[in-house]
Amino acid sequence: MDGSQLLRGALDAAVLAVVAQEDGYGYDVLRRLRAAGLTEVGDASVYGTLRRLYRSGALTSYVMPSDEGPHRRYYGITGRGRAQLDEARTVWADFSRALSSLLQTEVEVPA
């Protein structure tokens, strides 16, 4: 199974989870995803996902002016985004339980 294919479906949830922890700008979100272990994730996928989540209202965005360096567009999670994230948690839990029992592999189910 291609890890990147699996990831694409779950990327929404991953991005929402990262932003829910703390507001972040594009490259920052990408870094945090990679740091969490999602090394397969493509830059374009993250940026595209951010924009799509913003358009759908799951994320809000604002520009932070800064003295040094560029002014960054930050994303924050909205109520709708949190609801989406909660749903994703449930779906993922069910899915990974089902799949790991089929594969007879122990998989860490996120709380």
Binding site: Y25, G26, Y27, L30, G42, D43, A44, Y47, G48, L50, R51, P70, R72, R73
Partner: peptide, 25 residues
């Protein structure tokens, strides 16, 4: 909108890695 987001992030990525963009992206 999309490209504005990408531009900012790419500039930072390029700074960090120092490698040619096409190689990483």
């Amino acid at each position: 909108d999309l490209l504005a987001e990408v531009e900012a992030s790419l500039a930072e990525a390029a700074e960090e890695s120092g490698r040619p963009l096409a190689a990483t992206l």
